[in-house]
């Protein structure tokens, strides 16, 4: 299995990457970790004329916190993000999700932004980013723009990025402050580190009485793109997340998702599992929040 021919250029800055993409006129591709792109080239599912290697663009590999947000450079290796203090402290949901991504060898190369740009419907990073309501900064020779993640995923492997745009940064709002915060991430996959048949990500905050102040719920693997379940969020806000509240949220999830059947799992299975995983993720998040409250 060998890739078709292409040209390659290594760039040292985002600006240079954008110029190279512009010159390639839509047939260029950013090469970051290459953990999805290179197999697609080998299988000849993609035939770009130019690869623009951004692996040595230092500005793409930073993680900084400040001003109520955490900024992760799109080229940050998944293994670096997983080990990062800021991510572990301020983005615990992303840290949990990263533990499910690929293997040691692929995390050592694969990037946080690459996974989002690739937009696999079952990818964990994209799911966590959606639950956390991150903003995506993209750059091209035409300028820089910010895309809310809710508008970023347009279907399986399809995003709002234009062919000449380079994903630059991910801006995550800092997790709700004060005690009483918790998160949960659950998935079912045929093997640990495979893409999920269904996955759920939850982040919430409780007030002093143990009532739910805020909650975000998203599911993955059950449609063309990861999906926020805002109706379930509505149902849970203000409740103490008692068993019947969680069951009601799970029922909403089962109603809202529109999974497809494939070789790996039937639509019905995915629907039931998505509901159950949301319930489990909520339970985890609640116990974390209760433990942290005191």
């Amino acid at each position: 299995m060998k890739a078709a021919e292409f040209d390659y250029v290594r760039v040292a800055s985002v600006e240079a990457a954008c110029r190279a993409l512009a010159e390639a006129g839509g047939d260029g591709k950013i090469l970051a970790g290459g953990q999805t792109l290179v197999p697609m080239l080998a299988m000849r599912l993609l035939r770009p004329t130019l690869l623009v290697d951004v692996n040595r663009v230092a500005s793409l590999q930073v993680i900084v916190a400040g001003g109520g947000e955490i900024v992760i450079g799109a080229g940050t290796r998944q293994s670096d993000a997983l080990a990062d203090e800021i991510v572990r402290r301020d983005l615990p949901l992303l840290a949990k999700a990263l533990g499910f991504v690929g293997h040691v060898q692929t995390r050592n190369r694969g990037t946080v932004g690459g996974s989002i740009a690739n937009a696999d419907p079952a990818a964990e990073i994209a799911l966590a980013a959606l639950a956390l309501d991150c903003e995506i900064v993209a750059q091209s020779v035409r300028g820089v723009r910010t895309i809310p993640i809710a508008r970023f995923f347009q279907g399986a492997m399809t995003t709002a990025l234009a062919a000449d745009e380079c994903l630059v940064e991910l801006h995550f709002p800092a997790a709700p402050s004060g005690g009483g915060r918790g998160c949960g991430f659950h998935e079912v996959a045929s093997r640990h580190s495979d893409f999920a048949l269904a996955a759920a990500a939850v982040q919430l905050a409780l007030d002093g009485e143990g009532a739910c102040r805020s909650v975000a719920i998203a599911v993955g693997g059950v449609g063309g793109a990861p999906l926020r379940i805002d109706a379930a969020t509505e149902r849970l806000r203000g409740t103490t997340l008692a068993a019947e509240d969680l069951a009601a949220a799970a029922a909403i999830v089962r109603e809202v998702v529109e999974p497809a059947s494939d070789l790996h799992a039937s639509a019905d299975y995915r629907r039931r599992v998505a509901g159950a995983l949301v319930e489990r993720a909520l339970l985890d998040a609640r116990s974390e929040a209760l433990a942290g409250r005191n």
Partner: peptide, 23 residues
């Protein structure tokens, strides 16, 4: 040759990577 089996693992600057997914 497409990143699934790990047989091609090498250390790149000290960390294991798949050499079929690295140009």
């Amino acid at each position: 040759e497409h990143g699934v089996c790990g047989a091609c693992s090498v250390l790149l600057d000290g960390v294991p990577v798949r050499s079929c997914l690295t140009l």
